[in-house]
Design a protein around this nucleic acid. Sequence first.
DNA 1: TATTCTATCTATCAATTGATAGAAAATCGG
DNA 2: CCGATTTTCTATCAATTGATAGATAGAATA
Lengths: 206, 206
Amino acid sequence: MSVSVQSTVARKPAGKREVTRRRVIDAAAAEFAEHGYHGGSTRGIADRLGMKQGSLYYHFKSKEAALEEVCRVGVGEFADGLEAILHKEQNSTERLRAAVANHLTPLLDKSDYVRVFLFERQHLPRDQRGEVARLSRRYEALLRWMFEDGITADAFPPRLDSGHAVLVFIGACNMVAATYGRPAPEQLDELMDGVADLLLGGLLRR
Amino acid sequence: MSVSVQSTVARKPAGKREVTRRRVIDAAAAEFAEHGYHGGSTRGIADRLGMKQGSLYYHFKSKEAALEEVCRVGVGEFADGLEAILHKEQNSTERLRAAVANHLTPLLDKSDYVRVFLFERQHLPRDQRGEVARLSRRYEALLRWMFEDGITADAFPPRLDSGHAVLVFIGACNMVAATYGRPAPEQLDELMDGVADLLLGGLLRR
DNA sequence: TATTCTATCTATCAATTGATAGAAAATCGG
DNA sequence: CCGATTTTCTATCAATTGATAGATAGAATA
């Protein structure tokens, strides 16, 4: 996290507006990740910034708008990364390994955002869920396509149900997110390999 | 749900105290499942019962106590059922199938309880999380034992990491819970088979 | 019937919440 | 240094919240 902030500052010393806004959203992500959306308060967010509660409303227009933005960043990681992988990598096995890595990597420096997206997005009002829902549907569609292509390519069995596969894939990855808050990098590598191996090979001895 | 209430009433016409208390906790489970713990209100619970908000406190001493009880019921299903399975069934494959069924079946008639346990237990204060945490640790320990015994029995590969297996198992099952609120029985059967097949056989063609 | 117990209601409380408006301060361009 | 713009602070608001206390009605008991 410190790295990305540092580089942003260094790259554009005058983007002060955007930098502060990012700090505010970071704090909102941390607050919501710790206490949930309804459990977290705007005063809690302000405290994390050494700011006064009322000042926040210069940066976002409502608590809900802040949640929306945190969720959007949280889900944004997934779809774009996966699309790139599907274009670059052609081997089904390697694709899946890369997809697991793509899903788990944000835990390193965007843990709060991802967790808020996973657990708090349901509290977005219908009419504000649009963009977030669109992004997560696209992610699921890309995953489904990956599995179906794997069947076509004869890497996965013809009777594989891609819907179930998507479910198990996302569930397994998210359980890692829920269990390990902000894993150490080596631990994360081991987790990625372990989960990918398990998904690919299954439990039964071959 | 109407069935279980009916039978309870018929079986014990005089257990009025317990029946009402169950109705109250049911309403709390529904409220928390829909809005989350912090998002739900005691007035919301009372409305579901056609009761006045203040009257609830005759049945539980605080909102937190209600959450604790909902979570305890929600997790209670899992461990006991799994222990019975491990005693009865000896074949590792059948054990796993039964374990998946055991995890998913409560979704049919205890959906609210299970979902509250899954998503809201984190909002229990440390000092009240005791019993709930104990039950879920026991469940995880039983699962781990199941996988390790499968390795010993030569059904699962020796290099299988039981910790990862527990993670993937729970994650996959919970994703079903999160995705399908209260599935139709046939749909649930298909989901149980699909998830179990996938966990056992993995993605790769054999 | 008189009395005790059970369950609910009424009314109210202090605390916290998200949000707004206007003053004040800080920053920046010239 | 000045004026303008950007950012933060102060003070306040109405609404909602969980919780409590005492009144009340009905059921059980004696």
